[in-house]
Design a protein around this nucleic acid. Structure first.
Lengths: 181, 181
DNA sequence: GTAGTCATGTAAGACGTTACATGATTCT
DNA sequence: AGAATCATGTAACGTCTTACATGACTAC
């Protein structure tokens, strides 16, 4: 369960409500998470139970009241332990590779057509990431080093998509050249 | 549900038993899948029910009987439809990026130490992939084009890890240089 | 008046992981 | 004697996704 730490991390930065967390996960590139209501609200209750966060209700006129969560000292030290813990290797899940593995049954034009679509998908992801990243410019890191780390997280994602693009372009080029010869 | 198509793909190549599929998913780099017993045996039953595969029992002396599954024409056309369908963009799940985002609380040496561990993990994954790939040399693709596609699937995975390595090495170098200045 | 945002949550199901269960055979 | 391999499967749990439910306000 790492959504717990994704949330704890954000709370270590500043207080959030469940709704704020959801928006942040959706709109951010660095702090992206496929966080849906269900998981977020459940995890927040769990954080309360474990004493890693506390909450207080903020009433607003014209809008529903919000429950704002603040991290505790216990939460901070739990987060630090996790950050120091053994990193897991990155996981690549790319169903397209499975599609490609069985694509020899396709005609040359069909094969190039799905490669083109894939290239398009990857380009879109890259654009979306860059756009989110741009809008995130205001995000104030607390130190210069933190700003650098966040930049490098973003850079990792960019490099991932660019790498994927060079791969698919090379594939398309090589397949086309073999057709001609 | 894409394990269905991962299995269907392998069955389009040659007949497999559940156990064979599990071994293949575990030991292969191109056809890797986190397929566990539970999912594989359930999906095979599903394939039977949908008429995408048929099975027959092979008795063996000294070993338990095995159920060997063969793809049907319906299965082949279902697979082709899927291969031609809209590719999904690749998904990157890297919990380490979340760890790194909140690593500014660490001392310089602690930070470098987790980066070193991450670099090690990635190097190990790359080695493991290369080793699996080497042992897979016997895998006989049916056409030259298929062999090329499989090579490129493998190449994609190599590039992914190499990309990750250059990123983490750059990160470590830049952090160290900033310390000195 | 229709859709979207703010804000909380629940329900149901799909998907994934770990562990258990059986039982003969083979390797160390 | 103990572990690993071959081969099937089940049980329990954990994670993730999609959809539903409520209700006031705002923007087109």
């Amino acid at each position: 369960m790492t959504i717990k730490y994704a949330i704890l991390g954000l709370l270590s930065w500043k207080p959030f409500s469940g709704y704020d967390l959801k928006k942040t996960f959706e709109n951010s590139s660095e702090f992206y998470w496929s966080g849906n209501n269900n998981q977020i609200y459940k995890t927040l209750v769990q954080l309360l139970n474990e004493g890693l966060a506390v909450n207080h209700v903020e009433f607003q006129e014209a809008y529903p009241a919000k429950k704002v969560y603040t991290i505790t000292d216990k939460g901070l030290s739990e987060l630090k332990n996790w950050v120091l813990s053994m990193p897991e290797p990155p996981e690549l899940r790319n169903t397209f590779l499975t599609q490609l593995a069985w694509a020899d049954q396709l005609r040359d034009d069909e094969l190039d057509s799905i490669l083109e679509k894939y290239e398009y998908e990857v380009r879109m992801q890259l654009l979306m990431h860059r756009e989110k990243s741009r809008r995130e410019g205001a995000t104030p890191a607390r130190t210069q080093r933190e700003a650098y780390l966040w930049k490098m997280v973003s850079e990792n994602i960019v490099m991932f998509y660019e790498n994927e693009l060079t791969w698919v372009r090379r594939l398309r080029k090589e397949l086309n050249e073999n057709l001609i010869s």
